[in-house]
Design a protein around this nucleic acid. Structure first.
Lengths: 193, 193
DNA sequence: GCTCCAGTGTTGTTTAGTCAACAGATTTGA
DNA sequence: TCAAATCTGTTGACTAAACAACACTGGAGC
């Protein structure tokens, strides 16, 4: 059996795990202090107390770090709700929408000045994860139809809803918001249930 | 000019600083959980997430770790009160007695079951520091007399007082206790003031 | 235009940490 | 009482991180 990515991470050399954690933690702190563009690789390695050359042994540049960081945080959110090991149900879909809303919401409150440019950088990562998660769900059923089109629609809709929610000046109760949105998303997915 | 031990610690390879911190932190946590004798080098390295061989690159055994740990904590206490960069005055002596009392007091409250055997292990380290601190103070004066005898007496007296204080069931106010003890200690040192 | 400055990304060499294995000491417990 | 298990302290081969260089880029200020 293939080792899953989770096991791979845990079987890494302890030095590697330590270094990545130092980088990620420092990056998180810096993101809370100033906006992404004004954070340099220097800043990260200074705060992490690691050598700059070591940074480049792990990440191509700060954009790769952002991708990795966002992916990791998002997947933790997903795993916390055990959405990574289940199948399509309206309830799971609801949880997923909720997770994305909360994730973007947290992003807005924990990051300093999240500019539009910054948001577009994380958007692609999040959508990739939503897309593959929905694909996984739908392809567990016996139905052999291609899922790409409905999954694409649902992915963009979910991200769009969460983005909209996180930008609202006066956010309504999340539960109500999701209740209202859910049927519009599930309508194209029900055929696979 | 010779680099002082403080600078040497700071100029160490970052990996060394990290590893030592991991070891010290883990050791501190373990000491709060169980008594020193039942803590193995394994336990420390497991909690610190470092390799056991790495431990032995830094410390000869767990007793060396205890010595280092106690020394470091005690010196931090001393430096906090800037007693490491001053000379003999009754007031500084008072601060020193206070520091030793508080240090042993904290030791008792933060360590699980501090047995007599454990206490005798740290006693020597602490006394070494008190002795060299008092020697430093007294030898800054112009008086050329040997200080070893009076410093020895004062060192043992101070440690004894602090040990006594930290063992008391109902500890009196520390200030009062020190006020009462101070003259008995300073009597042999005043000649160097 | 120009220099100065701060950051980037890469390199070769040195050093610290990892890992698996070892023999020996101590403890556990059936 | 013997065997299994656990901890110790040490070794040699391997790998990651540190470090000090390097050439390069893109402003900022004159």
């Amino acid at each position: 059996m293939l080792p899953n990515p989770k096991q791979m991470e845990e079987n890494l050399d302890p030095r590697v795990k330590r270094t990545r954690k130092l980088i990620l933690d420092s990056f998180g702190i810096l993101l809370a202090e100033k906006n992404f563009e004004s954070i340099s690789v220097q800043d990260v390695t200074d705060k992490a107390q690691i050598n700059r050359a070591t940074f480049y042994a792990h990440f191509q540049d700060k954009y790769a770090l952002l991708d990795y960081s966002v992916s990791k945080m998002f997947m933790q959110e997903i795993e916390k709700r055990t959405l990574n090991a289940c199948h399509y149900t309206p309830d799971n879909l609801r949880s997923l929408i909720l997770a994305v809303c909360e994730f973007l919401g947290n992003m807005h409150s924990s990051c300093a000045q999240p500019h539009e440019q910054f948001e577009s950088l994380i958007e692609n990562q999040i959508k990739k994860h939503i897309f593959s998660l929905l694909s996984l769900w739908l392809n567990q059923t016996k139905i052999k139809k291609s899922t790409d089109i409905p999954v694409t629609v649902a992915t963009w809709a979910i991200y769009g809803l969460a983005s909209h929610y996180s930008h609202m000046k006066k956010r309504p109760a999340l539960d109500k918001f999701v209740d209202e949105a859910l049927p519009l998303v599930s309508v194209n997915l029900e055929q696979f249930a």
